[in-house]
């Protein structure tokens, strides 16, 4: 859908412009409106990046919840890895596990893989179709379904609501 791609890229460029300038004077907002309309028309009239995004209030609410959940997981995992680094006998138990995701959209898989990489202790090495190969600093369970339950489920439930 063309209108959707255009409007999403327009909103992103406009938000970046307003954040960079950090002022709401009339001339700055006007220049931003013209520039972001031009840029999104020029560069995003054919792009497919946002075509799988749902534009409903529910999806928007889930996006906010997802960011919140992700930040909590980030802090929790950081504390965990800090403990491992600072303890004298270095209690690591590394390994590569396989996780099977149920997400179909490419963009959702990208966000899932990036979220797993950003939380310390887990790291996406390779993606093949719906299988993610994850290097885990403390392998609790190497079984595919169990590992999926621990690593991917907490992100998946929210991403499913945001992307088709």
């Amino acid at each position: 859908m063309k209108i959707k791609n255009l409007s999403v890229s327009f909103i992103i460029i406009m938000a970046a412009w307003l954040l960079l300038n950090w002022s709401f004077q009339v001339e700055i907002v006007l220049i931003g409106l013209i520039l972001s309309l031009l840029l999104s028309l020029l560069f995003c009239s054919k792009c497919q990046l946002f075509s799988e995004l749902k534009l409903t209030p529910k999806a928007f609410a889930y996006t906010l919840i997802y960011i919140f959940v992700f930040l909590i997981e980030l802090v929790k995992a950081n504390i965990d890895v800090t403990k491992r680094i600072l303890s004298p006998n270095l209690p690591i138990n590394p390994g590569v596990v396989k996780v099977e995701t149920t997400l179909n959209s490419k963009m959702a898989r990208l966000i899932l893989a990036n979220s797993i990489t950003l939380t310390p202790g887990t790291f996406t090495i390779e993606i093949h179709d719906n299988a993610l190969y994850i290097h885990w600093i403390d392998v609790k369970n190497s079984d595919v379904t169990e590992a999926t339950e621990i690593l991917a489920r907490k992100f998946e439930t929210y991403l499913k609501e945001i992307y088709d």
Binding site: V75, V81, I85, L90, I92, P94, F123, H135, I137
Partner: peptide
């Protein structure tokens, strides 16, 4: 600081990259 201590203490390249991402995120 903790991440750079981790870079020295970890045994192989994979675990070192793990602590590296920790540094540049939080």
């Amino acid at each position: 600081l903790i991440a750079s201590i981790g870079l020295i203490r970890m045994p192989d390249v994979y675990n070192r990259v793990q602590t590296g991402t920790k540094a540049s995120t939080l």
